[in-house]
Computed example of a mutant assay.
Amino acid sequence: MTELNFRRHRRLRTSANMRAMVRETQLDKQDFIYPIFVVDGENVRNEVKSMPGVYQLSLDLLGEEVDEVASLGIPSVILFGVPDAADKDAEGTGAFHDHGIVQKATRFVKERQPDLLVIADTCLCEYTNHGHCGVIENGIVLNDKTLELLARTAVSQAKAGADIIAPSNMMDGFVAAIRAGLDEAGFDHIPIMSYAVKYSSAYYGPFRDAANSAPQFGDRKAYQMDYSNRTEALREAASDVEEGADFLMVKPALSYLDIVRDVKNNFDLPVVAYNVSGEYAMVKAAAANGWIDEKQIVLETLTSMKRAGADLILTYHAKDAVRWLEGKA
């Protein structure tokens, strides 16, 4: 046989220990942010039909959930408020009320688990009776009038004890408005985790079930990004960096790993990938039908997000992922 000249890459794959020794990307529980949906009322534990294992929880049942998160070593949660329909109005005033559901939940979590970082989702869509992320006039979301309400929301969340403000509305100038509002209120130490690159995506469907936040007319394409665009993401992220963002989030994650890498390569801030509800729901549905190995699919998917450049991953799989990584399930 003719002598061949080639590299033997398989030498580094010969055993589990060898593969672990040279593994380039490592998932860790410190990477995860766990989302929680909080509702008014008592003894409410509503499983989201399209998101098995995810629940809307009232404050009296929230303690068990955050205790479990803390016991697993997950360092942070993000709180989404689900107010009663009767409390919604045209300007989403429940978002910035001192006794709003996120504000109450934030105080509860910080008292119960003071070391757990609380991230407050800062948007209006869950609180408006029209389901859009801002003030509506003649069927159009008004950018600049919305900014004032977002700043008020961020300040009220910081007053309640939120460690990080996470605005998800995609209004132009939202980071600048929120940064100015926080600084003027004495919260210059509170970082902003900007949903810097948020696409208009069909992957959000189950979340809108969980948060009761679907728009009552039209869609959000006039303010969320067109999923066909790539360079626009860098313009969006650059604006948020200039305005004072401390983290840059890309949402969704799985179909946008190229964007995660672009953001990582171009900016020196921590990058967050949001493993969104539709991505979660598809895995759960396929696993329930026995078509995939849920554990292996989830860990592979989350690793791909970190490999693409995510420093943090916001995921509904967080609790299960920690158990799997630590051999507890």
Rank of each mutant, 00 (worst) to 15 (best):
L124Q: 00
G92Y: 08
H99Y: 12
H132E: 01
T146M: 02
S156I: 08
A90S: 13
V155S: 08
K110M: 08
T122F: 12
A151H: 05
A85P: 14
F108W: 09
A86Q: 12
N129G: 04
L116P: 05
K110T: 11
R112H: 15
A86R: 11
A160Y: 11
P83Q: 13
L116A: 06
C125Q: 12
F108Q: 03
H132Q: 06
N143H: 01
G92S: 00
V155E: 11
G131V: 01
P114M: 08
I119K: 10
H132M: 00
G134W: 02
H99Q: 15
A95E: 02
A105Q: 09
S156E: 10
D144Y: 06
K88I: 01
V109C: 08
V155Q: 14
G139I: 11
D121F: 06
V82R: 10
I136T: 03
N143P: 09
D144E: 14
E137N: 06
V82F: 07
V141S: 05
G94N: 05
K104M: 14
F96S: 00
H132P: 00
S156C: 12
H130T: 01
E91M: 05
G139L: 15
A95Q: 06
E111R: 15
E137V: 15
A154D: 07
K104R: 15
A151R: 12
Q103P: 15
D84A: 14
G100A: 07
S156V: 12
H130G: 00
E111I: 07
D89H: 10
F108E: 03
I119N: 08
T106Q: 10
A90Q: 12
N138Y: 06
C125M: 10
A120P: 11
P83L: 13
L150E: 05
G92F: 02
R152F: 06
T128P: 04
R152K: 15
D115K: 15
D87M: 15
A105D: 04
V118P: 01
N129L: 04
R107N: 10
A160C: 11
G139K: 13
V102R: 10
A162I: 03
L124A: 02
H130D: 01
C133A: 06
A160G: 06
C133D: 02
H130L: 02
D121M: 08
V141M: 14
R152G: 03
A95M: 02
A162G: 11
V155R: 05
